[in-house]
Design a binder for these strands. Structure first.
Lengths: 314, 314
DNA sequence: CATATAAATACTCATATGGAGTATATGCGC
DNA sequence: GCGCATATACTCCATATGAGTATTTATATG
């Protein structure tokens, strides 16, 4: 290993760090953006950085003035068509970061956005959006049937069925990336610049982002939706104390679907992840709710050994 | 994003591709190594490569003369202490690759190794190895108690308990990396060169590998052990036709623990992942077993929608 | 002050799932 | 013919999970 490569093979590779920084405020999932919502925070990895993570921290905190909490790696890629300059290869290393949204003024154009602005078809908390059966699915089917080859047609049909939960397939909230990719291939999102102007302008497909940032965001959402089910990561997004309903609303915001309240509480309590503070809050209207905090000692253990949050699959 | 960085900040970054190439033969899990078992196949990412994956394919197939099947990314890192040369930063991108072991002669020093050679404490197929209670755990506890600070001590004790399934914790075969990291911190593996010669020479801690290759191998094993439970990836390691017991033995080889035969068969069959070929084999001794093959049509679907293999957790 | 309302909290119930044990069938070698 | 090793089939039970319903406790409002 580590063949000593010639310097001229190596020296013009650059590395870029990109963050999907997520938070939840007042029951809505947010993502930190710059450039007026058109891009995710990012910056080059430089020689001065201690590690990839610290480099990411530096860039994001500089661009957004918002501290990062939990960080995990998403994916690294270096597809040739990403680089405008052919002599220069760019390796992009993307991360998922979680934070408690703060009131502090973000820097220049950095703003929190509801992530369903970019993926309107992903929010099923009040049932499937009408745009799915009315617009999205019909256009996808039109794309599938437009294929000349029969096997391509049936392949497209199957992918649509799985990704969007048609026929005998259930809606799977984790398939965020697969859905985006189908829409991209069908040239229904603006980033696929083969898309027809009429399609891409439709608000049901959401606004485009720079380069492949929306794809990276989809990857981050998918990862987070998968992870909340078996790792106690919601905690990173919650304030120090909270009610069980607030916790449930956060999970629902991330998962994009409702959960059964009694079952949710049962699971939370039997896992002993939280403890009562003794205080209650009346801010919610209705019967005042007990306030809870996370049991950080258990967190250390569950962070590695696993936990369960109910996001129903039927 | 994409701040135009000065060229002098970017140009001396190199990227290295590393593979954990796994296979299963005659009921044993293998990993492809080079340099006489001291290193994983790897090589620099170059301008000529179409993508990271194709660069990896090129290097590994050149070094080992073995084709790669399934590939997935593991992790990307760029810790400063990895680079010997301070002026040059190396980004390492590691992958997990799966293949059917072939009889073809591997190139020069490329050889398949049983991966439990490197992690003797990970093979629990015939119960926990004696070295665990006899040698490893006592030394870990000695390390824990050697800490001056009381909170460090209890922190170490807890980590040992979780990672190695002591006290009321169950053995969790997925914690391969956590176990290696504890052993590393306790300076019981040779890679932690603070280790005392007597410790590192003990065969119970396995042979060292170059740089952090053994850590990367641990990451790959952990990922594979986690993944076989919910994605149909064992298939990538099996020959075209096989008996259910052979399939079970493969899963057990990877997971490092035995599974309940009747339950295993029940799950395999009700998932409709395999179909009978009609043929039987008498090679196994005892009653001849039916031969099966995978249903590739279902694979496409389950690859994304999920599947279940029973690797007990108690 | 009664009443509607919103939320918290507490049960019940049917079914799915997963772990474990046991029994029977079939071919081979001696 | 008999033991042996494996394949194959079935039963049993504890727990997890999804879904439904009822009750309590506060605030807001007329």
């Amino acid at each position: 290993m580590k063949q000593p490569a010639k310097a001229d093979q190596r020296h013009s590779i650059a590395a870029e760090l990109i963050a999907v920084l997520a938070a939840v405020t007042s029951g809505q999932p947010r993502v930190m953006t710059i450039q007026n919502g058109k891009a995710l925070p990012s910056g080059p990895f430089e020689l001065g950085h201690r590690s990839l993570q610290s480099g990411l921290r530096g860039w994001v905190e500089h661009q957004t003035r918002h501290p990062l909490g939990y960080i995990e790696q998403l994916y690294t890629f270096a597809d040739r068509d990403r680089a405008g300059d052919e002599a220069q290869r760019v390796i992009s290393i993307s991360y998922l970061a979680l934070a408690r949204e703060e009131q502090a003024e973000p820097a220049d154009k950095a703003t929190w956005r509801n992530w369903y602005d970019y993926f309107p078809w992903e929010d099923h908390r009040d049932g499937a959006p009408h745009a799915l059966p009315d617009v999205i699915i019909p256009r996808l089917h039109a794309w599938a049937e437009a294929a000349g080859d029969i096997s391509v047609r049936s392949d497209r049909r199957l992918r649509i069925s799985i990704a969007f939960g048609l026929d005998d397939h259930a809606w799977n909230e984790e398939l965020v990336l697969q859905r985006y990719e189908v829409l991209y291939e069908a040239a229904l999102v603006e980033e696929a610049h083969r898309s027809r102007a009429e399609d891409a302008k439709l608000s049901v497909f959401g606004p485009a982002m720079a380069a492949d940032h929306r794809r990276i965001l989809a990857t981050g959402i998918a990862r987070l939706r998968a992870k909340i089910k078996y790792r106690p990561v919601v905690f990173e997004l919650m304030p120090p104390v909270f009610t069980l309903l607030q916790l449930q609303r956060s999970v629902e915001a991330l998962a994009g679907r409702q959960v059964h309240k009694p079952n949710f509480r049962r699971l939370i309590e039997q896992q002993e992840l939280v403890e009562e503070t003794g205080a209650v809050t009346a801010d919610t209207g209705g019967r005042p709710a007990k306030l809870f905090r996370f049991r950080h000692d258990v967190l250390a253990e569950r962070a590695v050994a696993g936990t369960k949050l109910p996001v129903s699959r039927a």
